[in-house]
Structures are given as C-alpha cells and as structure tokens.
Amino acid sequence: MINLSVKLNDWTLKNPVIPASGTFGYGLEFSMLYDLNVLGAFSTKGTTWEPRVGNPLPRIAETASGMLNAVGLQNPGAQAVKSLYFPAIRRVFSDKLIVNVGGHDEESYIKAVELLSDDPIVGAVELNISCPNVKAGGMAIGTDAGLAAGLTAAVKKVCRCQLIVKLSPNVTDIAAIARAAEDAGADGISLINTLLGMAVDYRTGRPIIANTYAGHSGGAIKPVALRMVHQVAKAVKIPVIGMGGVETAEDVIEFMSVGATAVMVGSKNLTDPFVCKKIIERLPSVLQELGTDDINTVRGRAL
C-alpha cells in the first residue's frame, strides 16, 4: 500500500493535491466532471466580506507556457458563500476545504474570517495578502513584513480553524515575510501567488489587459515558485503549501522535495479540468519509480 496522506498540523489530507484558489471556483462546476472526494482538499475562489464584480474586460491573456489574469477577486461575498455555496459543496464533497479570504482593510478581512472560519466545512482559512489585482489590501499587505504580521495577528484572534497565510512572490526577501507571518501566529504558509506581469498588443501598442498589469501563472513561473518555496521551507517550521506551475505528479514531487507538505494546482485546472484527478492517480507510480511507499519521504530532499 502506498501512502499518499500528508498532515497540515492536525489535519490529515488523503493526498497532497489541492486545487488552488481562483482556478476551481467553489468546486461546483468541477463536481459535475469528477468526484471531488478524490482531492486532498480544495481552496475556494478568493472571498471578501462585500460582494465584488471585479475588474473590466479583458482580464485574461496568454503568455509563453502560462497566462495572465486580472480578475480582481470577483465573488458573491462571504455571507452568500456561507449560506448558499457551503451547503451546496457539502452535498458533493465530504472532507473539509480551504476558504481563501481577501479584503481591502483589516476590518473587512476580520469580518470575513470570523464568519467563514466558524463553519465546520472549513479546515483552514487561506489569508490572501498577495492578490496583485486589487487596489487596496492584497499585495500591498503581502509585500510588507510589518503589515503582513499585523494582519496575521489580528485575523488569528478571530480565526476558528487553521490560518494559512498566502504569500506574494513580488518581494525581494520572501523568507522575511514568511517568518513575520509565522511569528504572528500563522499555522501554515502557502505560496506563490501570481507574479506581477503585463502583455502588450504589438499592433496597437496598448496593454491587452484592461487593468494594465496582471498576475502571471502557469508552467512559466515554476522555477521562481520552486526557489521561493525552498527559501520559505528553510525559514519556517510551520507547514508550507507550494504552488506555481504545477501540472504533473512529477511537479508535485519536485515541490515536496523543496519542502512543501502539500501542493496546489492552479491554472492547469482551466485548460485541463481533470488535471488534479490525473495527478492523484499517477502519484503512486511515480513513488514506486522512486522506490518509496510513503509520499512523506520525498519531502525536503532538496533542502
């Protein structure tokens, strides 16, 4: 028997594969494609206290081996997510999920976390202090160790489940931000959110994305993501969830090798909706090839 289960502190996931926030909606569309119960967990679309309609179109562009998005945290608001989406998810998913929470100031984060973390379906809150597509909050917090620590500590007081802080890669010293979050009480770190990028139409000379700048994701960012997960895993003791360009079971092993306990799969869900299921099905044979029957043995080999 091959063991794929991993532990995020006291939460045991049946495998380390977690669809990443913003690429899986609230799971409901995917539940019509495959049984969500094969997943370790999943992370919801970034949810804010107030409903948000997001940014003007175009919000999407393609890059070499990846994509740009400037969605801008479009979501129906924390109350609707709790009263409408959580019961619907419960019908198709029997494990706990990760709720990704965004905000524009401390109060809006606190209100959303207080409301959402109280629901038994939530295994962890993923505090999004790294969204590059909103004016206030988001990345402005995640690129400043002091602000990141302040918000983490404030949210931790009201959070009734594990608190994972999701970091932005748009910084010079990612380890310092990770340590600040850990010291402020984070139970885990997830990274990386998207890298700030841009696309231009050579014909018009204008930006393709209405918002000008957008978040870069997909295979193109994997080397940066591996490097940052490596730096953070060396800097903190709490579990690290790695992501950025994960598309295959081999990618999952690579992220665990640089210290990740679990791995999130983002953009690839958009182009191959079955990718997470395929990765989970393939993981045992990759472990067999590596001569191990426990996925936890691959963790940290590159540290």
Binding site: G22, T23, I60, N69, S267, N269, P273
Partner: peptide, 9 residues
C-alpha cells in the same frame, strides 16, 4: 481563461 465558468475571466 477556462470557458466553463470557473475562473471569472
């Protein structure tokens, strides 16, 4: 981004 309703793109 996706064409099937999950990315809000």
């Amino acid at each position: 981004g996706c064409g099937f309703g999950v990315c809000m793109g």
